[in-house]
Design a protein around this nucleic acid. Structure first.
Ligand SMILES: [Fe+2]
Ligand SMILES: [Fe+2]
Ligand SMILES: [Fe+2]
Ligand SMILES: [Fe+2]
Lengths: 215, 215
DNA sequence: CAATATTTTTTGGTTCGCCAAAAAAATGCA
DNA sequence: TGCATTTTTTTGGCGAACCAAAAAATATTG
């Protein structure tokens, strides 16, 4: 198992490789590699029993692959909690550091870290942390953009992309905030919401409104 | 800068590359690589201004190389403190984990970790932790084997090799213990000492007695 | 001061991951 | 259905780091 192989595994998992087939192109785009590199890496992962590949059709994970991916998500998110809680990092800076740490973390280390942090259930972006046995179930599915005008919702989870987080930070929109949806502009225009927590009005871009989960 | 290059740098530093020339063979032996691989890697490090290489004579570090090596030693040792203090690891298990972590640790991260740990000055094996600006000076130089029969000395530092630490753990010889040297057997035989801390008699192998520093 | 032994460098070759471009297959649409 | 577009796979090649074995340089020693 190598860092790049681990990243392929994790990305297939995140793209839905547990329950559906993921395309070569999606993987190539997500990892910023050429399509040919994906074909090659996937064939190795197939030999190792981590993935199933039907040529020209798509890629999905085996049980073993899913288990390994959960383990990585667990490591990634626990390190994120550590960076925020213990080292005073801000939300936008933790992802890249955790991306490195996850690949050099033994089972023993991650379990000790988990305990030290008090067995947290969510990462700082609101994602669920799989437990020791890999149980994992992302819970919020509604996206801010899907909320109707007039709805009052609670911000629950962010996709952890650095630029998005920086943008949301500037907007002062945090996890846990209650917001009232005021209006959706047409033609993929922004969503205007009122943050009830500090009573300010925010204009959230169409794209960002798809990366903010609410309930 | 790559993990392997970093390990070359650190080993040259530890073999004395700051003040003298280190041989190709020493490096190859320490890193378990072929001599040819060392020649190759060193030539890259020379191009990058990290090392100075006089063919057939030896290798030493430039100022830049020394600075980078100190940074790595600092990262390595701070992670070791973390593993013991925060995650409950034992002395013998920390080196290999720290060996991985050191290569994925940003300056920001290590400084935050340093602060979180209360700016420790020594790693769990008794080695000095260079400060933020890289100041570093290993202080104890006398080795257990050099102490004369009858001397009473304090155990100060161990070379952090897993097998050595396991052996010393079985012997119940810890850093801080006061011991009285009883006798040196001839022909590279063991050193017999009395541990004044718990009043037991220990027989320490000739080789191990070179890896235990005292004052 | 040779002759031998050791150390170092050079050479030729491997594997791993990556890429660009060509070829093949699947898909979309007219 | 048939042609064009998109996606995927295949091919040929590259750089990094490794090795084993050959060649060159240095060191030891009788
Ligand atoms: Fe993340
Ligand atoms: Fe990663
Ligand atoms: Fe160590
Ligand atoms: Fe290392």
């Amino acid at each position: 198992m190598t860092p790049m192989k681990e990243d392929y595994l994790k990305i297939i998992f995140e793209l839905g490789g547990t329950h559906k087939k993921v395309s070569n192109k999606q993987i190539a785009l997500s990892l910023n590699v050429a399509a040919g590199s994906v074909t090659e890496m996937i064939s190795k992962m197939t030999e190792e029993g981590l993935a199933v590949h039907v040529p020209y059709s798509g890629i999905s994970l085996t049980k073993k692959g899913v288990r390994a991916a959960e383990e990585l998500v667990r490591k990634h998110r626990l390190w994120e909690v550590f960076l925020v809680e213990k080292l005073g990092y801000s939300l936008a800076d933790i992802h890249d550091e955790a991306e490195q740490l996850e690949h050099v973390t033994s089972d023993r280390m991650i379990n000790a870290l988990d305990e030290m942090l008090g067995n947290p259930t969510h990462c700082p972006h609101g994602g669920i942390i799989p437990d020791r046995s890999g149980h994992y179930h992302e819970d919020s599915h509604q996206v801010l953009n899907d909320a109707k005008d007039g709805d009052i919702v609670t911000v629950d989870r962010f996709i952890d992309n650095h630029d998005l987080l920086t943008y949301l930070g500037e907007l002062k929109l945090d996890i846990g905030d209650q917001v009232k949806v005021l209006k959706h502009d047409p033609f993929e225009g922004p969503v205007t919401v009122q943050n009830l927590t500090d009573d300010t009005e925010l204009i959230v871009s169409y794209k960002a409104a798809h990366y903010v989960f609410v309930k």
